[in-house]
Write a protein that binds this DNA or RNA. Structure first.
Lengths: 223, 223
DNA sequence: TGACTGAATAATGAATTCATAATTACGTTT
DNA sequence: AAACGTAATTATGAATTCATTATTCAGTCA
């Protein structure tokens, strides 16, 4: 009896890594804010040991900064960091697009097409919430479609760092329609399994998002 | 009195992350090997707490795998992982090359040129040791020259994973001379500050290294 | 008043202890 | 002898304790 479905019982520290990461991404823990171990332990109902282990991991991901004997604080999202991170994500998406074209099967592509249609519908309905969700699903599916665990892991790490700067709300109508057009092109390339083409489009798509968002960022926060 | 030169006294766990990472990279801890906490604590003369913190960080870097209640073991270097990692490093180096061209000052370029000459000399003397060192210095300097901390951090993580597969010793005369030629071209582009050009060369340089090394890897280990 | 000193307090780094899961060793049964 | 089951041992996950470093706050003196 081969029970491939093994029971997953995450350890406390893994759980805490997830929970804490969410707190940072969801902005419950604000950039620059001190992260007192005692309080967190109390709110999570765990001892300091697993919590501190989790903080070490988060620090290696760049979400918090540890100062010896001074504890952890949430890293600030600076303009510099965004300028560093976006081009990086862009080339990872480019690579993901290329590899997705060669590695995805027809079913997987069909599922993305479905999600793409959802996104278009959300756009027409001006439903930002649904749009963002579908958009993120599509990007995640393409990354996953590359079937490159290492790429996926690093992409996730970088995406988290950017997602913290939630300037997404500032999506202008102009940028929105442009993004939709870019996604249409991407779908064409994906169906044609044009690796180079999809990669180039995904890279440019990300760089366009970058410039659009840096305007917003620069406007209300010139950090 | 502003003593900008603060005294750095790394915490125990940071120290341990370094030491353990070295052990893995230097192959003192072999892939697949169990990593008993007790033994490591004894050899390092520390308690389990900081050691376990370090293991968590190493796990997030992908150097060890943690199984709940079963401890840590060094991750295997599989062909699949190398096939996943090399293209990733390639695009990172491409981006680094582009950004280095725009961000490095003349002095920094001159220092790389110096190191490049060292490398050529090592090549002519068939001094593999010196060659590898100079070669690595050059690549690190180019990454650093991009002045992109995020890029640098991720590149370092990926490079570590690859460096564990020490097939470098299998460098053939043919590949060696080809690598030298590629480096010559890279220096030209760097001096000309041709961002696109240098980026493309660095990417291709890494992919060439990849194919050359996968032959060696496939020969003696078809994992 | 304001800056400096030093004690009191709080927070962190690391060791130790405790509880539990996994592994090993042993004995029984067939 | 092989396989199973159970007890003893070991290793790990997490809590607790201890030691040290920061921080706060009161008091002093210019």
């Amino acid at each position: 009896m081969n029970l491939t479905q093994s029971i997953k019982r995450p350890t406390l520290h893994e759980e805490l890594v997830e929970r804490l990461r969410d707190l940072v991404v969801e902005d419950a823990l604000k950039p620059g804010e001190k992260v007192p171990e005692k309080d967190l332990c109390a709110s999570f109902g765990v001892s300091r040991t697993p919590l501190r282990e989790a903080l070490k991991v988060l620090a290696s991901e760049g979400l918090v900064e540890l100062q010896a004997n001074r504890g952890a604080r949430v890293t600030e999202v600076t303009r510099q960091e965004l300028e560093n991170t976006f081009p990086l994500i862009a080339v990872l998406e480019q690579l993901a697009g290329e590899q997705a074209c060669t590695h995805m099967d027809d079913d997987a592509i069909a599922r993305i097409a479905q999600r793409h249609d959802d996104m278009i519908a959300a756009y027409k309905a001006r439903d930002r919430q649904a749009y963002f969700q579908a958009n993120q699903d599509i990007h995640n599916a393409l990354i996953e479609g590359a079937q490159n665990d290492v790429l996926e892991a690093h992409h996730r790490m970088l995406a988290v760092r950017v997602r913290r700067a939630r300037f997404m709300v500032n999506l202008s109508d102009e940028r929105w329609s442009q993004a939709i057009a870019e996604h249409e092109q991407m779908m064409e390339k994906l169906h044609a399994r044009d690796a180079e083409g999809l990669g180039a489009l995904m890279k440019q798509h990300m760089l366009n998002k970058f410039t659009a968002h840096m305007k917003a960022f620069g406007a209300d926060d010139a950090a």
